Amino acid sequence: MAAPRRRRTAATDPESDIARRRLERRQASGRRSDVRWAEILAGAGRVFARLGYGQSTLEDVAGEVGISRATLYYYVGTKEELLVGLLHDPIETMRTRLEEVAALPLPAPERLAAALREYVRTMAELPELFVFLSENVHQVMTGPEADHIRDNADRYGRTLAEVIRSGAKAGEFRTDIDPSVAVLGIIGMFNWIHRWYNPEGERSLEDFGEDFIEMSLSSLTPKNS
């Protein structure tokens, strides 16, 4: 698959002194630990969840955080930078948790169930992932950090497919379903939890997750079992 062309923005092609300084701040190792930057990301997450990424503006984020547009501009120049900063660590956390589960010395069905429970647990702990699921973010993100997000998401899918593939080889899963296709179906189902989940409703994320895990395992169980 060809890599999408990257748009030229102030963040990636700094032509002004202000843009250059902002780029230097973004690349500085300490920015992620900066308290104000954390507040800005948290505010952006709330705005994107409430209004949708496409409808949100930097002015909306500044108002949510309680700072001026000029102050926000000191930290970030585009809405895209906020999205990348918001999703970078959660996507990596989800991927590393899956890889830890996939390496466990357990039968493939147990590893698959454990991996999907970790998926739901991570979504509950890091609600900013709902922004990733509800928006077609692959079409709006550019730059090295965005590439890192996409790489983590791709590695997640490959690792989950390998769990299913190992189960098929061991006779624990069906062999007539392509593991990559199975992953698309399973992740597609889990990714839509955010459409149905109501924090005020009777069913928790874990309730949805357990039902989906049962459906996933049942669909992969060998026909003669």
Rank of each mutant, 00 (worst) to 15 (best):
A2E: 15
P4L: 09
R7E: 15
A11T: 10
D13S: 13
E15T: 09
I18A: 15
A19G: 06
R21G: 08
S29L: 14
V35A: 13
E39H: 10
I40Y: 01
A42N: 09
V47F: 01
L51S: 08
S56I: 02
G63T: 07
V65L: 03
R69A: 12
A70I: 15
Y73E: 08
T78L: 06
L83W: 00
G85A: 10
H88C: 05
H88T: 09
D89R: 14
P90M: 05
E92F: 09
E100C: 09
V101T: 13
A103E: 11
A108W: 07
A114H: 08
A114F: 10
A114M: 12
R117Q: 04
V120S: 03
T122A: 14
E125G: 04
P127L: 04
V131I: 08
F132R: 07
F132Y: 12
H148Y: 04
H148K: 06
I149C: 08
N152L: 04
A153I: 10
V163N: 00
K169G: 14
T175E: 15
D176W: 03
V183N: 02
I186V: 14
G188C: 12
M189D: 08
M189N: 09
W196D: 13
W196P: 03
E200T: 08
S204E: 06
L205S: 04
E206I: 03
D207P: 01
E214K: 11
S218R: 15
K223W: 13
S225L: 11
